[in-house]
Computed example of a mutant assay.
Amino acid sequence: MIYGSIITAIVTGGFFSFLQFLIKRHDDEKNHVDERESLLEEALLAILHDKIYTAGQKFIKRGKISAEDLSNLDHLYEPYKALGGNSTCEKIMERVNELPIG
């Protein structure tokens, strides 16, 4: 009877240790995925910022913008803003929206 209790305790302890190991491994993988997702979001935000900034400056220097180019910039700016982009591109978009279309 005592041996049975000892064996049960060892098996149960081993089982819970293994279960704890699996949970920790899953949490570590999830943290790695979350970190990677955050870095990808930052990279996407940087690319959108660069595209909006570069194109916006070009149109501001030109002094006008076509309807197609304005639509394209709007398609870039909407996700940029939704991802938490800064006010630099917001100011550029305000200036671009004031340009005559032509």
Rank of each mutant, 00 (worst) to 15 (best):
K61Q: 09
S38F: 15
T88L: 12
D34T: 08
A55G: 01
L70R: 08
F59M: 04
I10D: 00
A55I: 07
E29G: 00
P79L: 03
L44P: 00
I6D: 01
E42W: 06
D50R: 13
G4A: 13
D27W: 05
L70W: 06
P79A: 12
G14S: 07
Y77N: 01
I47F: 11
P100H: 10
K58F: 13
G85N: 06
D28C: 00
A46M: 05
T54H: 04
L44V: 00
F18T: 03
S5R: 11
E29P: 00
D69M: 03
N72F: 08
S5Q: 12
R62L: 11
I47V: 13
D74L: 03
I101D: 01
K30N: 04
A67V: 10
I47E: 03
I47Q: 12
F59G: 01
A67C: 02
G63W: 08
L39Y: 14
S5C: 03
N72G: 02
H26T: 07
T88I: 14
I23K: 14
I23Y: 14
G85Y: 09
R95S: 07
Y80N: 10
H75S: 13
H32R: 02
K58A: 05
Q20T: 14
I101L: 14
S5A: 13
D28Y: 15
L40A: 11
I10T: 07
N72H: 10
K58Y: 14
P79K: 14
L40I: 15
E68Y: 09
N97E: 08
E90A: 12
P100W: 02
L39D: 00
K58S: 05
K30Q: 11
E94W: 11
L73F: 07
S71M: 11
T8G: 01
K91F: 06
I6S: 01
H32W: 08
Y77K: 06
K61P: 03
P100G: 08
V11W: 03
A9M: 14
I10H: 02
G14N: 10
E41S: 11
G102F: 06
I92Y: 10
L40E: 09
G13D: 02
C89K: 02
E78D: 13
G63V: 12
R62W: 08
K51N: 09
I7M: 05
L39H: 12
F21K: 03
D74M: 10
